[in-house]
Simulated scan of single mutants.
Amino acid sequence: MLLDYIRLDWDLPILPQLPNGFKSAAILFHPFIQMPIGWEKSKRENPYQNIYPSDEEMINLSEPISWKEVMSKSNLKSYKELSLA
C-alpha cells in the first residue's frame, strides 16, 4: 500500500494547505532517520556522551530510512513482524 503525501510549506498555516473538508491535521514524522555521517562525533564533547539531534536538526539534516531497510537490518521477514517489534 502506498501513501499519498502532501508537501507542506512550513512557513504557512497547515490547515489551509490541505484538501477541502479537513477540519484538523496531524504531522507524523518518519519513524526512522539517519543523521549525516560524522554528525554525532562533531557534537560530542567526550566519547562517553550520548548525543541526540534536536527536532530542527532532524527536520533539516536527516534522511529517512525506509521500512524495508529497517526490516532488512533487523532480519524481520514481514511488515507484521516489524509492527510487533
Rank of each mutant, 00 (worst) to 15 (best):
A25G: 01
I6D: 06
P31W: 14
E56D: 11
R7D: 04
P13F: 02
K80M: 03
L61P: 00
E40A: 08
S54D: 00
W10K: 15
M1V: 12
K68Y: 14
L76M: 10
Y5I: 07
K73I: 03
E56G: 00
E63M: 13
L18F: 12
M58L: 12
S24C: 00
N60R: 08
K73F: 04
L8K: 01
P13L: 12
R44K: 15
F22Y: 15
N50R: 14
Y52C: 06
L12R: 15
M1R: 13
Y48C: 06
I51H: 08
S62N: 07
I37F: 14
A85Q: 09
F29E: 11
E63S: 13
I65N: 07
E45T: 10
L84W: 15
I27A: 04
G38Q: 09
I6A: 08
P13R: 02
E81F: 08
G21F: 05
H30G: 05
P53A: 03
S83I: 13
M35F: 12
P64D: 03
S66E: 04
E45L: 14
S42D: 10
G21W: 04
P19T: 08
P13H: 05
E63L: 11
E45H: 13
F22N: 12
D11Q: 14
S42E: 11
K41Y: 10
S74I: 01
F29N: 11
P13G: 02
Y79T: 11
A26D: 02
L3A: 10
S62Q: 06
K73A: 02
L15I: 04
P31A: 11
L84T: 09
Q17C: 03
P64M: 03
N20L: 12
V70S: 00
L8V: 08
H30N: 10
Y52I: 11
M71R: 12
V70G: 00
R44Y: 10
L18D: 03
E45P: 01
Q49D: 00
P47F: 09
L76H: 04
L3F: 15
E45Q: 09
H30V: 11
L82H: 06
K43R: 15
Q49I: 07
M58V: 08
S62D: 01
W39D: 04
G21N: 02
K43E: 08
S72I: 07
N75C: 09
I37A: 11
N20E: 14
N60M: 13
P36G: 06
K73G: 02
L18K: 13
P19C: 07
A25M: 00
L84A: 08
K41V: 06
S78K: 09
